[in-house]
Design a protein around this nucleic acid. Sequence first.
DNA 1: GCCGTTTTCGGCCCGACTGTTTTCAGTCG
Length: 574
Amino acid sequence: MDNSEVAAIFYEVADLLDLQGVAFKPNAYRRAARSIEDLSEDLSKVAAEGRIEEIPGVGKSMAKKIEELLMTGHLQFLNKLRSQVPPGLLELLSVPDVGPKTASLLYKELGISDIEHLKQAALEHRLRGLKGFGEKAEERILQGIRTLEAKGGRILLGDALAVASKYVAYMRSKVQIDLISPAGSLRRGKETVGDIDILVGDDDPGSVMDAFVSYPEVREVAMKGPTKSSVVLSSGLQVDVRVVESSSYGAALQYFTGSKEHNVALRRIGVEMGLKLNEYGVFERESGKRIAGQTEKDVYDVLGLPLVPPELREDSGEIDAAKKGQLPSLVEPSHIRGDLHVHSEWSDGTGSIAEIAAEAASRGYEYVVISDHSQSLKITNGLTPDRLRKQIEEVRKVEDQLDGKPRVLAGSEVDIKADGSLDYPAGVLRDLDFVIGSVHSRFKMDKADMTRRILTAIDSGWIDVLGHPTGRIIGHRDPFEFDMDKVFSEAKEGKVCMEVNCFPDRLDLRDSHCRMAKEAGVMIALGTDSHRLEQMDFISLGVTTARRGWLERADVLNTLSAKELSNHLKRRRP
DNA sequence: GCCGTTTTCGGCCCGACTGTTTTCAGTCG
């Protein structure tokens, strides 16, 4: 039973308690579940060392339940709860506008215990007799079920950013707006987002709202109030906008950026100081006097904290770090001096080496790594040793023509075969400036074999970077299993970097794994895995992921200058 | 069920919007 399984069980307990109308406990379980998810070590290890109760939000009672889960794989308490709540009632909670109160009411009054029956009842107009239910409520629930059936999913950060910037540009074109910014999980840079939040600071909310709902791609206006509106786009994506007076913009931006848990923690600090936080500002409880709100920094200031970067606002240790003045100084886009993973037309990319080099130069990079696929990956037109030698000649030629601005490194994304050997012999690898080793096949190997496979590749001494280390494709392929602790410690030993593959549906390593890698002393290399020139933009998604993983400039390989990089690479050739 | 330089008991974040209410409960973020 791993951490995420224990967390999932606690979430279920919380929902079941909610359905029974139990107060406060549900949130206690949710808080503990979140702490467990964020834990950077195995729960079983924490348990073995008697440190379970050190997990935030876990006390005696939950510690016992965790131990029971780890020992037996079951939880009596959960079984009891399940027997008290009809199966299926849980799924009702996933319907928008159906919360615990409504779900229990539906069950008690109409015996409804799953979405299918709810849909039937709504279609037959059997809901409108219920207390608090009218025609509208019935329609809303039907609409909610349709929305759920239609999408249910979250969209990739890269896609959401594009939608948001288009939307913001539209609103700006329609009406004069003082201040506007995406907020929510989008601003925090989560790898996927469920909806898009936009915050506006303006003293004329009416016209902003009108502009907002007039966006051509709006399919449905779900709600429209004087300061808050919500629409569904034809893609099914929900977009919320909130308008506050410009003088409250900082407080509101803080508030709507979240995360919810981060904000709860901040308000708790506020309460201790006799302050009240809301989207309009920070107020003294006694006098009601407003003491901050213009900027986000002011809000954190009056709480005695430095400004916490949005990417860290997950209540996963950043508040403590802020209190102690130990927030990391995060890596920034401007620190990045090159792209370490780019495909050309030699394999399955589209750009020529000269075009890629020119693109890198136009981005102000000092270097770029050409890293096409190796020979086994036939489907990508992987390079035979012969073609690779020719490509290296071409790389040298282009670099000479540009007088080394940028430096163009001859690299390869070399396949790590099932036995851990590399797809080129040493004689070929020796001619390369930069080697990314990647697993592209046999993802379903068992954990021990996959661990051995990766360790063998690292131990070869040839690879500089382990490419997309977990192999996941967000929403399509789960990460493959291997012993990350072992791999990280071996990588540290061999001075091998882990990649953050910046491709929008990879982001691999992910944020939390970056943090683990840093703690293990492993450097991160950002590579866009570009197959077209414009995809080199993806570097910003990688920087965001690195920031969410608490990485600083010194943790990221591509913050080195060209000279430092080549020294680094020279040092570690076998 | 957790937690505490005000507390080991008594709190537990806060406000907008909707629908159906004739003053507010439920849901959401």
